[in-house]
Amino acid sequence: CANNANVNLFGSVTAGATTGAWSSSGSGTFSPDSLTLNATYIPSASDTTIGNIVLTLISTNYGNCNPVSDSMVVTITSQPIVNAGNNLFVCNDNNVNLNGAITNGNGTGVWTTNGNGTFSPNDSSLTVTYIPGSNDTIIGTIVITLTSTNNGNCLPVSDSLIVNFTPRPLVNAGSDLTICSNDSALLAGTVSGSSTTGYWITLGNGYFYPDSSNLNAYYIPDSADIANGSVYLILTSANACPVSDSVLVIFQQVPVVNAGPNQVICLSQNQVILNGSISGSTNTGIWSTLGTGTFMPDSVTLNATYQISSDDSIAGTVNLILTSTNNGVCSPQSDAMQILITPVPSVNAGADTVAC
């Protein structure tokens, strides 16, 4: 096995000679030397990587005879790889869920602890529950070790994890939020008690700024979040046993305002019929003018009539602005249209004439 790879040799040379020399197809060494028939072969790192080497014993001091040799193949198997899992924070009143893994070798192992708890259903299942003993939570920290078994020629391999028992922290993700769909959500999470740190995750596709470990981060939604209309964000305590709380972020559609197309009218015309529209989270708005005219019947009618003033006519142009109202959490949105006032055309067909 790779972690127990030294090979004890038991060569023999008889009849015409009693001495011999060992050689290897690999790059290991013989101890105490290659002339000792019962030497120990110490594989090199390259030998264990290759996995197979040939050791050859050839007779020496053979007189008038030709040298005779014999070979053996040494197969070096991979050592077990054991993973007990990551270190854990566990609440004082919770059990510990373990999910170990052993590859190579026979794939079996046994759990042990320096605490006084027990393993369920047993200590030889890789996926087990550790039930803390009375002293474990008092001490606060224990080590749980997974060791490979049925190792064959390999030495046992172990891996350990540290379990930290802590009181249950208090986690508050904050109140549910309603924000405009073109805005970001300012979060107000708190973690107190056995920890003051935590991290955010989203059940949507947005991201946290400056990062997910900032309890007062901004959540930047993406288009899929907005299309869904809402998203849940989850705050979980860190550096203590994990406790979570969630907050719902609801997206209100930003108002879409259209004041209508620009219009060109004649100087003799003193009224313009408007055709504004507002959609999204509101359908109400108010007209304003950069001129001095008035709106009929009022400025909150989207298809109002604009009464041109004499100052508007003199100026030749006037800009009208439609702004959304009843916007909820969204900022007012505006759109403008222009009225161009042109002089009345002067037409002269010429003097009357008589033709034969």
Rank of each mutant, 00 (worst) to 15 (best):
C1F: 08
N4S: 14
N6E: 15
A17H: 09
T29D: 04
D33K: 00
A39E: 06
A39R: 06
I42A: 09
S46K: 03
T49M: 02
T49S: 07
I50M: 04
G51M: 05
N61R: 00
N66H: 06
V73K: 11
V74L: 11
I76F: 01
Q79H: 07
N99P: 00
T103R: 04
G109L: 05
N114C: 07
N116D: 15
S120M: 07
L126S: 11
V128D: 01
G140C: 00
I144E: 05
N151K: 04
N153E: 12
P156N: 13
S158Y: 06
F165E: 04
L170T: 10
L177D: 05
L187R: 01
T190S: 13
I201D: 10
N205C: 03
F208T: 02
S212D: 15
S212E: 10
L215Y: 03
Y218L: 13
P221S: 09
S223I: 15
A238G: 14
V247C: 12
N258K: 12
S268R: 10
Q269H: 06
N275P: 00
S279P: 08
N283E: 02
G291Y: 09
T301I: 11
S310T: 13
I314R: 07
N319F: 15
C330W: 08
D335H: 07
L340C: 07
V347R: 11
